[in-house]
Design a protein around this nucleic acid. Structure first.
Lengths: 260, 260
DNA sequence: GGACACCTTGCAATATCTTCCAGGATCTTC
DNA sequence: GAAGATCCTGGAAGATATTGCAAGGTGTCC
């Protein structure tokens, strides 16, 4: 195993585990603790990980869209406006599928009592409605993806395959002229089932994700009815989408007080 | 477990529990109280939590996003001791089914890293483990029962009918000499599926529920292996249960200060 | 005011980190 | 293809950090 390869392996491992001891990493890559220690020190230079006593931790979990870190304040005003704009598209009484991810969570916050029935695989969304007597919240089965608060796996896919909704509200981590991308294989499967089970499909994707492709191709635009984004989205791609008959909603980003 | 990881875990735990004693945290992360005390002091520097006498509390009660309110006020010391005593019965590495309800939530709090796989229909329990990379948490599908944060309905029953676990940890709202009772019809169905799918069945029922019958009869004692209760349970019924071969564990109720 | 639990401080044991060195693999140069 | 240089790897010794425990002080509750 070459150093480069080993380091890549360490980084990948940390992406998944967030924390790992040197011993654990040594075992994983089949090298001595000394070597791993050096690798970790090297990787720290590249700012991707941070050394800690006894191990290392990942610095920025690469997949920022789906990390439901309570402290995550990335593009909050944009997501907030998108949430508001998207919620405005929902007709009262519709039943909706809500995807996981922070952007969709913001949509859920603005739905209020418009919707009576919600289907979701997102624990934060589930919790949001859990205290309400006015909503029937159907939670998919599945295994919790650590840190994301998202239910994944065959049970989650099966749930959505069995269900139908008027609207599905989804998000992605990249959108380009060929379609929409996401960074988690497990979530892509679920999203496809959501799309298949919904009469209308709305994607909420903030402007920074335009012209970006992530690891996994999710879908082309054949089944996409609406894309809600913010005014920061590049005009060219917006025009392309509209030319294909997609209703693109540009939410105005209201200046906001910094989140205290 | 390494310092950085442990601190992250403490923080996550506090996000869910809002307040926790040092003892509880120590149990959760598998370290001594001294170490946790130091961690908590360190975390306090980072302004994320605040130390209090006897424990620590999360500083920003996390607006609304990710916190399940588990602030049950009834018989907290009893449930706490029951939780501790019940957790002590679990062998490391077992996979467990955890019922909803506050008593079972207290058991979950004390399980720490003993268990690797958890199956539950309780959103608070799910959330408790959701930040951990060491636990695989399987959440049943279902509809949220308002106020309880419990998933109910056919999907929930189906999930447990399909699954098997070494231990099932359940609770009830009444126990008498003929069996165990619960007050929610929908939950009874699920509990029966849990019992059917577990090799060992443990009921955690505080002493005030003894000699009481609720609306729905759940089960007799044929499938019940252990009953964990507190020292306030009436001796007569305890003796009856023991005579039937049930292992009755009486948790000592440690006097506790009210959580300030 | 007394009893109790909790916190602080100091200390020994343990684990980890740093630094250094020798053996081996790989690369460079001829 | 061979010889030398360079780098990488794994381990060892001393330095440092962390951990758990105990003694004494402090705050809290009744």
């Amino acid at each position: 195993m070459h150093p480069e390869e080993r380091r890549a392996k360490i980084e990948t491992y940390l992406q998944a585990a967030e924390f790992a001891s040197l011993e654990e990493l040594a075992q994983h890559v089949g090298a001595s603790v000394s070597t791993v220690r050096r690798d970790v020190a090297e990787l720290e230079e590249g700012k991707s990980i941070r050394r800690t006593h006894g191990g290392a931790r990942i610095l920025q979990p690469k997949t920022d869209e789906f990390v439901f870190n309570v402290r995550d304040t990335h593009h909050v005003p944009e997501k907030e406006s998108i949430g508001e704009a998207c919620a405005a598209l929902i007709e009262p009484g519709q039943n909706v599928i809500i995807d996981s991810g922070t952007t969709c969570f913001h949509v859920a916050k603005h739905l209020g009592e418009k919707v009576a029935q919600v289907i979701t695989n997102s624990l934060p969304v589930a919790h949001l409605f859990s205290g309400s007597n006015r909503h029937e919240v159907h939670v998919s089965g599945g295994v919790i993806y650590p840190r994301l608060g998202t239910l994944v796996g065959p049970d989650a896919v099966a749930t959505f395959s069995r269900m139908h909704a008027d609207v599905a509200i989804l998000s992605g981590s990249g959108i380009a002229e060929d379609g929409i991308y996401n960074s988690h294989a497990l979530i892509v499967d679920i999203q496809r089932a959501m799309i298949a089970g919904a009469a209308k499909v709305i994607f909420c994707i903030d402007g920074t994700k335009f012209e970006r492709r992530s690891t996994f191709f999710l879908c082309d635009f054949a089944k996409v009815d609406v894309v809600v984004t913010d005014s920061g989205a590049p005009a060219a791609l917006v025009a392309t989408l509209r030319a294909r008959g997609i209703n693109v909603v540009l939410a105005a980003v209201a200046p906001r007080h910094p989140t205290a």
